[in-house]
Design a protein around this nucleic acid. Structure first.
Lengths: 199, 199
DNA sequence: CCCCTGATGTGATTTAGATCACATCGCTGC
DNA sequence: GCAGCGATGTGATCTAAATCACATCAGGGG
């Protein structure tokens, strides 16, 4: 298992490349993106400490279906494909864990597809705020720029800026450069709870 | 393994329900959908003979992340969850096959997310035509109504109708009720090849 | 045959939200 | 201090596409 360090903005692997192994986030933040020919970018998910990625192609096409990029200075650990196959042969339980990870990832992408296909941009931005908030502090905080938030929610910066201004006017969030503090979690949740989960 | 028969339009399971097992399509057509509170529906994928579904929750949340619906009169085979776990214990290779299926499914949803997030509706409709065409005949045919096509591509019927009229004027497709014949595959592919794959 | 219903075709209108075009603002390096 | 750059704020357009509102068409059952 090899440790690797990446700068903010550095690409880890590209869509279409042959997969090299399975990656674990030791520290930092990684996002998985799809870029279309028109240059627009859709972020599929962002991954922090402890999460893994690059797993899709391990058992099927061998080709990365998307691009991975470091959002912050990030340390990763890579388990090369051959080593991974070795380990998984020795420990069959690993496959079950991976299946569970895959299942969650599928559910999350299904959710994203629903959001992109049927929600308004405002709803998608709210959803992203909730999804990427750090719930550690007294008030949840989102450490992303408007630009990054826009790409996560499938829109453009200006729309995010305007929507956040709106939320700030309603005292639902408190915006600072590169950081959004959520003051009223309940309101945000209520707008999207009615969309998402059926209990 | 139990065989079950469903009418066109009948729901097989609902999002949020506890998963009962893994399903195989023996004949007919099934679609996996997400429905938002506003009533709009996003179809995630359509599955024909030989494909399986309902697999996501088997190893993680136990909750179906989406709804499954029969589009045609459809015969399914169900392997209950307990039986499935039994089989997978006896045959570890099964897990690897499932991982491969999951990987493909993930790649497909990643692709859908890109399409929904960054493509124009026209591109998405073209993409759906190619994805859901039956390539058996001389000319590929798509056996879907405009309504169904709209839900697969995340738009509304009128837009599909208009776009198909456009394609028909350019002699790229030949439309008949409930059936679209693709006359010029190359043109359709060229519009989306430049979006999708990097070789 | 005719009525009914589901599938289509098509215009007119509306609007969310993408684009463009700048103005600030705050930090970093020199 | 100030030049420069990345993040943000904001107005003024522009436009793809959703919505609304009908007309038509084709098949199936009684």
């Amino acid at each position: 298992m090899v440790k690797q360090f990446y700068q903010a903005g550095q690409l880890i692997f590209l869509e279409g490349e042959r997969a090299r192994g399975i990656w674990f986030v030791v520290s930092g933040l990684v996002r998985i993106v799809k870029q279309s020919s028109t240059g627009r970018i859709q972020t599929l998910c962002a991954l922090n400490r402890g999460r893994c990625f690059g797993t899709c192609p391990l058992f099927s096409s061998e080709i990365n279906p998307a691009t991975a990029e470091a959002l912050e200075p990030t340390t990763l650990a890579v388990l090369p494909q051959t080593a991974f196959k070795e380990v998984s042969r020795q420990r069959p339980a690993l496959a079950l864990i991976l299946l569970s990870v895959y299942g969650q990832r599928l559910a999350q992408l299904a959710h994203l597809s629903e959001a992109l296909g049927t929600w308004s941009t405002a709803d998608r931005i709210n959803n992203c705020l909730l999804t990427y908030a750090d719930y550690g502090a007294a008030n949840p905080v989102v450490r992303l720029t408007h630009e990054e938030l826009a790409r996560l929610s499938g829109t453009v910066r200006e729309v995010v800026t305007r929507h956040l201004a709106q939320l700030e006017k309603s005292a639902i969030v408190q915006a600072q450069p590169r950081l959004i503090e959520i003051l009223n979690l309940g309101v945000l949740q209520s707008t999207w709870l009615c969309k998402a989960a059926t209990p």
